[in-house]
Simulated assay, not measured.
Amino acid sequence: MRVCLLTDKPDHPLLATASAALIEAEHRVTFLNPDTGTGSPSQLVTPDDLADVYLLKAHTPRALVLARFLEAHGARVVNSAAATELCQDRSRIAAVAEGAGLPMPRTRTLDALSEALPVAERPQSGYPLMVKSRHSRRADLVARVDCPSELRDLAAKWPNEPVVLQEFVANSGWDHKLWVIAKEVFAGVRPAPVGAPPDGAQPAPLVRDLPQAWTELALHTGEVFGLDVYGVDLLDREGAPVVVDINAFPGIRGPKGAPAALVALALRRPRPGPPAYKA
């Protein structure tokens, strides 16, 4: 088979290990950076000489354009362009999650962070709160805000940034990261971006002690969002999991079985089924 990875980081540990295994099994592996050049991304491929599968690790606008072009010409793309694009928009994520009954913090969308200032002083503003860039990308905005003055300071730095405002979920300071590849679940624990535990503190509970309901929630999230390779960040709110982030094809580091699972997914022949989420 011919497997093409759409990425600007072919040396990522997950991709590099999976690629080596594919090559060892005598499959052809190529890499393509969708952000190469200034012309249309479709110029990077030849429609009558497509790979058997494209693994969409890149999430940039050009990568999505290329993925849609490949899909329109019958190529198999994992994850789909529609599902990947959906996971770049935190406002849409929240709306889809709410419609599916997934436990997620209450979310409000603003076209610019400066729009939050007129209501910053109101008691119902609900501090602390999380402020996040609406569009997920490298070096985006993710911050906890505890009072109106902190919100004003943040708005001064990011006045025109489209954002979502979310209720802050009180937690232990640990993110439970569940990564899923073709319904195989891998888990890890990392310090939360905000409210992290003290240096040297150990996570509790251990990953192996996560309730089955948490892994079932991760699997159901993938079904809702039409994802094959993804990550779900969960926080423990009084013993119940809360979804605080969903990532299409994240950088999965650590789980030993992840590269083998990705290889198996790449080599799997697609089965007829319902189309990916397109809203």
Rank of each mutant, 00 (worst) to 15 (best):
R138Q: 15
P255C: 04
F31D: 06
L102D: 10
N160F: 14
A18H: 00
D52K: 04
P10N: 06
P272R: 11
T60D: 03
H220T: 10
L110R: 08
A100Q: 02
L210P: 02
Q88W: 12
G254P: 14
A116Q: 00
A116M: 01
D35K: 01
C4Y: 02
P61G: 07
D48P: 04
A100T: 01
V185P: 02
P270Y: 00
L141Q: 11
E167A: 15
P34Y: 06
K57M: 15
A72V: 09
I246Y: 08
E85T: 05
G273A: 02
T17V: 09
D233S: 04
P272N: 09
L32G: 06
A204L: 02
E71A: 11
D175C: 07
L110D: 11
P241H: 09
V77K: 02
V189H: 05
L165Y: 12
R68S: 05
W174M: 12
W214H: 11
Q212Y: 09
N79H: 01
A18P: 00
K278T: 13
F69Y: 14
R152V: 10
A95Y: 03
A16S: 13
T107P: 00
G173S: 02
H176D: 08
D52F: 15
P61A: 14
A20V: 11
A196S: 13
V243R: 00
L154M: 00
V185K: 03
H12L: 13
A192V: 13
R237K: 10
S172F: 13
A213W: 12
K183T: 10
N33W: 05
W174F: 07
E223H: 03
L32A: 02
L227A: 05
P10F: 07
V207G: 07
T17H: 10
T60Q: 07
A63R: 03
L262W: 08
D11N: 11
G273I: 05
V164F: 04
A182C: 02
R269L: 15
A75F: 10
G37L: 06
T84C: 11
R92L: 14
M104S: 07
P211M: 09
N160H: 14
A201F: 06
A94R: 02
Y277H: 09
N79E: 00
Q124K: 14
P13G: 07
P159W: 01
K57I: 10
L113I: 01
Y230P: 02
V65W: 07
E98K: 09
N247H: 08
V65K: 09
A218L: 10
P250T: 03
P275L: 14
L64H: 13
D153R: 14
L154H: 00
E150N: 05
A170C: 13
E238V: 15
R68Q: 05
L262E: 03
D209R: 12
E24G: 06
A72P: 04
L32N: 06
Y54I: 03
T84P: 12
A266C: 04
L217W: 04
T84D: 05
A276R: 15
T36Q: 13
Y277C: 07
P241W: 12
P274V: 12
S80H: 06
A51L: 03
G273E: 11
